[in-house]
Design a protein around this nucleic acid. Sequence first.
RNA 1: GGUACCAUCGCCAAGUGGUAAGGCAAAGGUCUGCAAAACCUUUAUUCCCCGGUUCAAAUCCGGGUGGUACCU
Length: 300
Amino acid sequence: MKKVVFILGPTAVGKSAVAVDLAKKMNGEIISADSVQIFKGLDIGSAKVTKEEMSGVVHYGIDICDAKENFSAFEFAQYTKQKINDICSRNKLPIVVGGTGLYVRSLVEGYNFGGTDKDENLRNYLEKLCKEKGVEALFEILKNEAPQEAEKIDQNNPVRIIRAIEINRNQSKKATEKPDIDALVIGLVMSREILYERINMRVDKMLQEGLVDEVKKLKDCGLSENNQSMHAIGYKEVLPYLNGEISYDKMVELVRQHSRNYAKRQLTFLRGMKNCHMIDMQNKEHGFKEIKKLVEDFLR
RNA sequence: GGUACCAUCGCCAAGUGGUAAGGCAAAGGUCUGCAAAACCUUUAUUCCCCGGUUCAAAUCCGGGUGGUACCU
């Protein structure tokens, strides 16, 4: 069993810094489990760690996908498993850091799912059908084509139903095998009030650092709201601002609000993680000491 | 000072005599194939205040308060 440390928590709680500190002290390498940081060119808005912040620690899972491409939990699972093997073979400690619940859980709990490429035509057709006839129509299709899947699925959720139909019609890639890992799961938390304050400050910082320019550059490269990467918070709001659809102030307000909503969902997800050690990061020093102790005991 | 219009949840609102729609926010939640996505649940015993009419008022009448527009 390969020992792997997971650092989880809501956006802006300070995961990246903790992970780098830990990697330095424990001879570790970092794997980012973040569905946005995988994209090249989405730097400021995804709060990607800079070279300086990495301070020499090796990071994986960042800039591994072109912003025009699609990426899914399946690809992440494939990629990560390989990296974990690689890191362990060099006798280093893999530290998975991330806010994307599904990515993390798929590893920790050993989900085995396959993958399927996006089928644009089918999707467009199904999306249109959904608009015209409602989700019920989508669900009917799934029920006819894959009754077993239909039983498990949320009948009101068009995104999931469409994906299920897509997978059922197209050949599924080989399912991932359960990774052979022994996980130490650490969840970083702090009071909602302080977290929200940090989020607001972080959004301001992103804007100062040139978030709008970053999105403009991506837009000039031909990216639009149709790209998966542009569904990310900070991008899906700046785009309509650049198109003159909403005001600057409205855009800022939305980025903040969506970040808060996201943090709340992450917290909910975290509460559902089994065997997760919650660490209060309100006091950074104290929190880090606790983490270090947990990791030392784990590796013993 | 005069005249007109308006006042419904944190915000935007529907409702014009029959017992408070909806959206956003907020809070809680779901999650094995797009997850920073998508979806679900909850949230005004009460309609600016006081009085009146009526079996019944957010809705009608009178007064007050606040806002907006125009006139002087």
